[in-house]
Computed example of a mutant assay.
Amino acid sequence: MSALMVALGAALGAPARFLVDLALKRRFGEDFPWGTLLVNAVGSLFLGALTALPLSSEAAAFLGTGLCGALTTYSTFAHESVQLTRAKARGRALSYVLASLCLGLGSAWLGLTVTALLLGVD
């Protein structure tokens, strides 16, 4: 059952990532990977919040592994970082790496902390 839940979550997360990336490329151009940065931050926030919730294994598989796993993408982050560096856009590459790390970790911490506070959980 968990494999099915992961697949169902991924079936929502992957197209969402694609559509967000496409919309932001159309809006802001392709000089900076805004789409990946946004979905990774939002996915980290959501996954942080999920960790504070008492979820069943099926819900965790669907929402965490499936949805968040397919919405966020480390491989695309790594690829885009390398591509920016190869294009001699080292300043943008460094900004992207630092923003990704800070936003990802900060969002996960924020999601966990706010959810735990709302639920009254330590």
Rank of each mutant, 00 (worst) to 15 (best):
G66T: 08
S100G: 07
T36I: 11
N40P: 05
G35R: 08
L19H: 07
S75D: 01
W34S: 13
L103P: 13
A89R: 07
K88M: 02
G29P: 11
G69M: 03
M5G: 04
S107Y: 03
E30H: 15
G91Y: 07
A11E: 10
A116V: 03
A70P: 15
A41I: 11
L12N: 04
F18E: 14
S2C: 07
N40T: 07
L37M: 15
L110N: 06
L24K: 00
A70H: 14
L19D: 00
G64L: 07
W34V: 12
A16P: 09
L38Q: 04
V121R: 01
T36M: 12
A16F: 15
L98N: 00
S107V: 14
G111I: 13
G29Q: 11
C102E: 08
N40C: 04
A10L: 07
T72N: 06
L105Y: 08
T36S: 13
L47C: 08
E80P: 02
G43W: 10
A7I: 05
F28N: 11
R26T: 15
G91C: 09
P33T: 06
L101Y: 14
L24I: 08
A41T: 04
T73E: 08
A99S: 11
F77M: 06
T73L: 05
V39A: 09
G43S: 14
L101M: 07
G43E: 13
T115A: 14
D122I: 05
P33V: 00
A116D: 06
S95M: 02
G29C: 13
Y96D: 01
G120F: 11
D31W: 15
G91L: 06
G120E: 13
T76S: 10
V6G: 02
L24W: 00
A60P: 07
M1T: 04
V121G: 07
E80L: 02
P15I: 10
Q83A: 03
A99L: 08
L53N: 09
R90A: 13
G13M: 05
G35L: 12
G9N: 03
E80F: 00
G120V: 08
R90L: 15
S95F: 03
V42M: 06
C102D: 12
A108T: 01
V42E: 07
V20E: 00
T36N: 14
A23K: 11
P33N: 02
G106P: 03
D122H: 04
V42F: 10
G120K: 14
F32L: 10
G106K: 04
G120A: 14
A23M: 12
L98D: 05
S44W: 08
L63V: 15
V97F: 08
A70Y: 13
A16L: 15
A10V: 11
T76G: 02
L53C: 14
R92H: 14
E30Y: 14
G13W: 01
R26V: 13
A99R: 01
G106H: 10
P33K: 03
A89P: 01
V114N: 03
G9P: 12
L117M: 11
G64W: 01
Y96F: 05
V114Y: 09
Y96P: 10
V20S: 03
L101G: 10
F32Q: 08
A10Q: 10
A116Q: 06
L63H: 13
S81R: 04
L117A: 11
V6P: 03
D31N: 14
L53T: 09
Y74G: 03
A93V: 01
V82M: 01
L110G: 06
G104Q: 08
A116F: 02
